[in-house]
Amino acid sequence: MRIFISTGEVSGDLQGALIITALKRQAVAAGLELEIVALGGEKMAAAGATILGDTSHIGSMGILEALPYLVPTLLVQRKAIAFLKQHPPDLVLLIDYMSPNLGIGTYMQQNLPDVPVVYYIAPQEWVWSISLRNTHRIVGFTKKLLAIFPEEARYYRSSGADVTWVGHPLIDRMQSAPSRQEARAKLGIADEAIAVTLLPASRQQELKYLLPIIFQAAQTIQAKLPEVHFWIPLSLEDFRQPIAAAIERYGLRATVLSGQQKEVFAAADFAITKSGTVNLELALLNVPQVVVYRLNPITAWIARKILKGSIPFASPVNLLVMREIVPELLQEAATAENITQAAMESLLNNQKKQQTFQDYQEMRQCLGEVGVCDRAAREILQMRKSTEISTIV
């Protein structure tokens, strides 16, 4: 069975690797031989995919922020479509990565309608959709949509998609995370030490808009709590040099690590983090956090005044229960002073910390049961049988 997978950015590469591992496991059980070609990154390659184009570095959030990536995105999209035209697969699996995947899905619908398209982790139209145009496009070319959020499933089902809610794949991933004691022993962190994780960037733009305010806050926290040490797991190795330079500039006692994200998270007392998938990983490990995000001021103005866009929450932790479990500091509210206040309150207020743990427990109920990736993989492989039957008929 030949599967083409398309995704992008750091988080897409991670999710792609998880589903590829599960697909291979389920294929063995079903007696299938898999060939997987993909747009993705190093993690997907390590999981067994042949990478047609590396998209882990191609990602942005916002209108102006997307401009530098327009040409690379178009080129990789054209490369994917040329490959699909020359080597039609048995199935196309799309993972998030909205703009390129809309183009690929539309191409499949118009030119290879007999090849089923499965969307796994669909774009969050249910959160920030301004019009239903893209929702209708997604529903139009998608034969099966595998949702990871309950609200995502309800939204796309009500729009006419064939939806199965499989749960969130991080439930599976975090099963192998070490305990706090194990993580601290591995990293050499004493039990009484205060460890704060900093997660300033997984996109280039975030080095500009988020890193300075996060590091300014860290500088103030360090002055207030001399025993604190900061731990920074790299999302991309390319970010090591600018982050190391910023550590020196702000005079932080910090350690930068690559490939030990689970250990850093599990060992942490608190995290100052950009919004994204990492928020859920931290929550599943019971790490209190403050979520920070800033866009170019012009992008924010256009979104508010012209597009009339608004979102209930930025962090998936809060989106799951549609209320604020973790503090979010967005745009003008994302200041070093506000970050410091949120961090100090959590680090020093035990009652606040316990409330966060209780709220995390509620959030977990919305993520489904362990076995998410295997459930998704079985649904994907099942599409081959349903396609064969419809072809025979």
Rank of each mutant, 00 (worst) to 15 (best):
A314E: 03
T277P: 00
Q351W: 08
I247C: 06
Y293F: 11
G276Q: 07
S346G: 10
Q331N: 11
Q354T: 09
L307G: 08
Q351A: 13
K353V: 09
E324L: 05
Q351T: 10
P242R: 07
K308G: 02
S315I: 02
N338S: 10
E328W: 06
R253M: 09
I243A: 12
Q354D: 09
G251H: 01
P288W: 00
N318D: 07
A245G: 10
A300C: 08
G251P: 02
L330Y: 09
F239P: 01
E248P: 05
A245V: 10
S258D: 04
L295Q: 13
F270P: 03
G259N: 02
L295H: 15
E328P: 00
L348H: 12
L329I: 03
S310P: 03
A244H: 14
M322H: 12
T299M: 01
D238N: 13
A283W: 03
D269P: 03
A334D: 06
Y250M: 13
N296Q: 09
S346A: 11
N296C: 10
E237M: 08
Q260T: 12
W231I: 14
R294A: 05
R240M: 15
P242E: 04
T255N: 14
W301Q: 15
R249C: 11
R249M: 09
M322Y: 08
V278W: 01
P327I: 00
V278P: 00
R240A: 14
A271W: 00
S258R: 06
V292P: 04
F239G: 04
D269H: 13
N338C: 04
A254S: 05
I302Y: 05
P233H: 04
P327H: 00
I247V: 15
R249E: 15
V287W: 06
F265R: 08
A333H: 14
A342I: 02
I311M: 14
A314Y: 11
S235A: 15
A266Q: 06
G259Y: 08
S310A: 07
L329C: 11
E337W: 06
P327N: 05
V287E: 03
A268C: 05
T273W: 03
N350F: 07
P242G: 10
N296E: 10
P288G: 00
N318Y: 02
F265K: 08
E227C: 11
R240N: 12
A303N: 13
T255H: 14
I339R: 04
R294C: 01
W301M: 14
I232T: 01
E332G: 10
R240E: 14
A333W: 09
G251C: 04
P327V: 00
K353N: 11
V291N: 02
V287T: 04
L280W: 04
P288V: 01
V287Q: 06
G309V: 07
L320I: 07
A333Q: 15
T299Y: 06
P327Q: 05
I311L: 13
N349P: 01
F313I: 03
L330Q: 06
A334F: 03
A266F: 06
I272M: 15
A333V: 09
A267G: 11
E332L: 07
V290I: 10
Q289M: 14
V290E: 05
F270V: 09
K352V: 05
P327K: 01
I232D: 01
T273Y: 01
A342M: 08
L236H: 11
Q351N: 12
S235W: 08
Q341S: 13
M322G: 02
T340A: 13
R323K: 13
N338I: 10
K274L: 09
E227A: 11
V287F: 07
L257T: 15
Q341M: 13
